[in-house]
């Protein structure tokens, strides 16, 4: 598979990942991604049709907990690290109208 990394792909991925790149850094990331993809494309050399994907590396199953209520932090503690807030709520600037 010879995957071409173009601006469109970078832009699409950046939106999905909520990252932004200026034109310089976008060139750099485009190059990096192209190189890395060339590198990881190696795995496509293997015959994998009859192989099941490995989904779990742990052997545990049915790890469940009881329906018990525990209050582990206070409201103040919860709000402690919040950058923008009032006494009750976490605050986020709104989506600008007309966008």
């Amino acid at each position: 598979m010879n995957m071409e990394v173009n601006n469109e792909l970078i832009d699409k991925l950046a939106i999905l990942a909520r990252l932004e790149f200026d034109s310089v850094s976008r060139e750099a990331i485009k190059k990096d991604l192209q190189n890395i993809l060339g590198f990881v494309d190696k795995i496509n050399e293997l015959q994998l049709d009859d192989v099941d994907p490995l989904i779990y590396i742990t052997d545990e199953v049915n790890v469940l907990r009881g329906d018990d209520v525990k209050q582990t932090i206070t409201h103040e503690e919860a709000m402690k690290n919040v950058p923008v807030k009032d006494s009750d709520y976490i605050k986020v600037p709104k989506v600008l109208k007309g966008k």
Partner: peptide, 16 residues
């Protein structure tokens, strides 16, 4: 294990 009751004051039924 935080509580699920409706109507609690905001951000009081939360855990890490």
């Amino acid at each position: 294990s935080d509580a699920t009751e409706y109507g609690a004051p905001p951000n009081t039924q939360v855990s890490v």
